[in-house]
Design a binder for these strands. Structure first.
Lengths: 163, 163
DNA sequence: CACAATTAAGTTGCGCACAACTAAATGGGG
DNA sequence: CCCCATTTAGTTGTGCGCAACTTAATTGTG
């Protein structure tokens, strides 16, 4: 490499520059998204990851921590303290399952369920903040999911290789 | 899911579900990307944000912390400890500017400059991990940048409105 | 020139992500 | 039946991101 005599051939410097651009774009987009949600969610007293947890609970009802983690691809190291903070805010309760004492069920309180009403305006405000229309959003989401699937597979393969 | 009798009509439940999907997709993609880089960068002893800083330094040479922050949209609260860790690893030195004693110049050491050689294979391995071709990557990057610009503008407008 | 406003870097505190680990309950194989 | 591998939560430690604050140097304005 290091030849730019024909199209598609990039030298080292160009590859690194492109990588910087890609890295930065995704990193910046993620933080920008986070920033807009942070502003909108401030009124609700939620952080962005807490909002994600509440969205899942509003949609699917009470869930054990394990299931929450599967939905959001987060482990107990992240979820345990997060759910405790939601409990501290009075939005959920945690209950040991009687059937399986290892499992902890996260239940919405009345207050937590009621918060949904105040969250209803968030999605539309986000949508308008992006300046994208519905089709573009859906398309972007599809690409991102495709990317995530590929990256997860590659990371798994890499981990296997390093073993 | 629900009524899709005419386009553009979604009820609250569907909006929340869509928002969960979008939030999650971007959040997950960002973390998946981070995860792949984490694996690849482990050999280099760099984290993903540290790699971003090194990419900028390799490309643009020694820079004051301020300029680094502008390039990466990171403030001193994030950069100061990060650069200190890079200094601890022997990759950069920090030097107070003689001309302006407020400013701190971040300079690559020989070791830091040499690390670039070992980083050259990273971009192509990332590219192959995504399963996307160059055109798709470049297109995705353009969309993400567009998104970031819109979101930053919206956040700024929101902040002005709240003041 | 004096002094207030601005600027650059750093510090503190909080929450998230993740790796590595512990503790306790469960379930399966000898 | 007992032991051990597995499963589920939780804890600890590190680094990042960001808000709010501090410190020190510089700039600008009367």
């Amino acid at each position: 490499m290091g030849d730019k005599s024909y199209p598609g051939a990039m030298n080292d410097t160009e590859w690194l520059r492109l990588d910087r651009q890609i890295c930065f774009s995704l990193h910046a987009a993620s933080r920008a998204f986070n920033g807009v949600y942070r502003v909108l969610l401030k009124d609700l007293g939620l952080t962005y990851p807490q909002y994600l947890v509440m969205l899942v609970l509003w949609e699917q009802g009470d869930l054990p921590v394990k299931k929450l983690g599967e939905q959001l691809r987060l482990d107990s190291g992240t979820l345990s303290p997060l759910v405790k903070r939601l409990e501290g805010a009075g939005l959920v309760r945690r209950e040991r399952s009687a059937a399986d004492e290892r499992s902890v069920l996260v239940r919405l309180t009345g207050e937590g369920a009621a918060l949904r009403e105040r969250a209803l305006e968030v999605p539309r405000r986000i949508m308008s903040a992006t300046g994208f229309d519905l089709a573009e959003i859906v398309d972007l989401r599809a690409r991102l999911d495709q990317l995530t699937t590929a990256l997860d597979a590659a990371a798994a393969a890499e981990a296997r290789g390093a073993r």
